[in-house]
Design a protein around this nucleic acid. Structure first.
Lengths: 356, 356
DNA sequence: GTGAAAGCGCTAACAA
DNA sequence: TTGTTAGCGCTTTCAC
């Protein structure tokens, strides 16, 4: 910066003022300084600046993985927003328990970011408390933490509406397939289960715990097992509501393999509306992670600017039922009994794998 | 840090030494300092440290998007590696030309990172030159830049082997569907096209430019148009090699819709081996972005440590042909003429959408 | 509107 | 092995 100052024939203070866009610089001087900075290819060291301002110009995000549709979408909308605000984006990927322990032990974000966005973790109270005295705004995303800024989807309502969709199609035996929380985060399983139950209750359909069978995500095999449990019930379901699109698709995959027609014999509903859903023509409950990322980012910026300000601190996002080709009115005959001989089904959307 | 020093009854130098794990600290003092640091919940400010060391403890990555299988996988393997080395990960998402111009204008990574990983851009010589005097190691990933550290997949060989696979199945009319470079990056289209041509040449199959039809990625509609161009040729292809799995799947989707059996009437081969390929039972040429991320990260760390060292600076990763259900021997009759009446195909993997 | 000087929190050289 | 001191590059009073 000293070089720039010398070249422009001013003091470093003036250079600093100019480069930060303060208005207290005369136009001619400003021009000269900017030219000098450009000539010398100069960029301010945030490190040095932050030392005196106490701000790092960085927003940290803590994510369970970077390799998922959800995180990709969320971060994709977050990143440009931060850049536009002149902020850097720092990513902490915490894939397993060991990393998680280490993270909470050292809290590496401390003093190295102006705000922290925590994505999709089910934190213990102790961990939350630890984040509380991190000395920066902490925003919980895709989860809902009492008394802290949170941005999340209304999972209860989403599952409620999804289940109602199935009920409206005449289904009464509706299974729910939640995803087993692998490494301490559950993608809102509980809330979605709640919404499912609520819908059944309000429709006067008796709850049947046999119809709730959890599975692991992304595994065709695990889906097959869950499916087996459901299909071998005395009274099997006519519709299955999977807590995630991936699981829904795995179920469909297995159903097709078994030559059980979807949606004629059994309807399948997902949750997320990720691209896979479109490929498989899957009916689903849509949520928008990109919207979530955007709102979380905006909230973060507001809280950095003015952490005691009067901001909406609990932002709840809506969901939408997207009916596609895998949900249909319940067959008039009891499920499990074919309406007609097995064989090729009639034409259907090519995106949905057929049995034939 | 002064607080910690006081509490431990030592100087700040000793605290600094202890916290950096230097061996020149006596065990008792070390214990005392560590305890004090823990009590006070102290974390070193990287900002302040970097001011004097000249190192930021940060690796920056410049990516076109965060919302893709490729980037997700690559960053997912890169992030833990950096964390293990005590480095932060800084992400610059540059989705469009405007952002790109702004990025190269200001080079915000300058002085704010110890190394830069550039993913999947086709840079101009001017841009490359600009990165050259960034004052830090720049590693090009998923691309191949003359004279600079690069980590990339052998796209030519991949396409060569893929095409050979089709040739070995008896195909002679083999189409290639590259992806139009949307915003200045081409995902190695050219190299893959090269490999395709090479394979045909070595097999003595004449090149036919009508068999190369580009498309946009992720668009069913665009795929339909490309497909139309191919199917309306006087001598249509019996196999299509898509430059990306997504395109391959879109082609299959449209083929099924048109009731053209895959692979009986036409074989389809992809490139990438992303999860979608498995869902659609797509034969493909596999590459490993996670391996790429890992190697790029390791190279970055090496170059930060010792930028003139004798490191392998061009790392080329292999590809593997993964035959699945969408490639099969060419039909004995000329393509375009059905071998048997249209109708349900025999049983096939349920992952691949069937026409029936 | 601009400059001089102090100091942010740390590390590195040097001394002890 | 430990402490003292200087200074990294910037921003921010406070004068002018």
């Amino acid at each position: 910066m000293a070089d720039v100052a010398e070249r422009a024939g001013v003091s470093t203070s003036t250079v600093s003022r100019t480069l930060r866009g303060l208005s207290t610089v005369s136009p001619e001087v400003r021009a000269r300084v900017e030219q000098a900075a450009r000539d010398l290819n100069f960029a301010v060291s945030r490190q040095a600046a932050s030392l005196v301002t106490g701000r790092t110009g960085t927003v940290a995000v803590m994510v369970p993985t970077l390799n998922s549709w959800f995180m990709g979408s969320a971060l994709s909308s977050l990143a440009p927003l931060l850049r536009a605000a002149g902020m850097q984006l720092n990513v902490y990927e915490i894939p397993d328990l060991a990393e998680r322990t280490a993270f909470f032990e050292h809290l590496p974000a401390r003093r190295n970011a102006d705000a922290l966005l925590v994505f999709s973790f089910d934190l213990t109270d102790e961990e939350t408390a630890r984040l509380d005295d991190l000395g920066m705004p902490v925003i919980y995303v895709s989860q809902h933490v009492e008394g802290r800024p949170s941005v999340y989807v209304d999972d209860v309502a989403g599952a409620l509406h999804g289940t109602r969709h199935l009920l409206n199609l005449g289904h009464r035996r509706i299974a729910f397939v939640p995803t087993e929380g692998a490494s301490g985060f559950t993608f809102s399983s509980n809330e979605r289960l709640l919404g499912y139950r609520q819908a059944l209750a309000e429709a006067g359909v008796p709850l049947d715990d046999d119809l709730v069978v959890s599975t692991r995500t992304g595994s065709k095999r695990a889906a097959a097992e869950s499916l087996g449990a459901l299909l071998s019930l005395r009274e099997p379901p006519t519709a299955v509501f999977a807590e995630q699109d991936e699981v829904a698709v795995a179920l469909i995959w297995n159903l097709r393999k078994t030559r059980i027609a979807v949606p004629e014999r059994i309807s399948v509903l997902g949750f997320d509306d990720q691209p896979l859903a479109d490929w498989f023509d899957l009916s689903t409950v849509a949520q928008s992670p990109s919207e979530m990322g955007r709102l979380a980012g905006e909230l973060a910026l507001k809280l950095i600017d003015d952490s005691d300000g009067d901001h909406e601190r609990h932002i709840v996002l809506p969901t939408h039922v997207i009916p596609r080709g895998t949900t249909a009115p319940v067959a008039t005959r009891p499920a499990g009994q074919p309406e007609r001989p097995e064989g090729p089904e009639e034409s259907e959307a090519p995106g949905s794998p057929a049995s034939a």
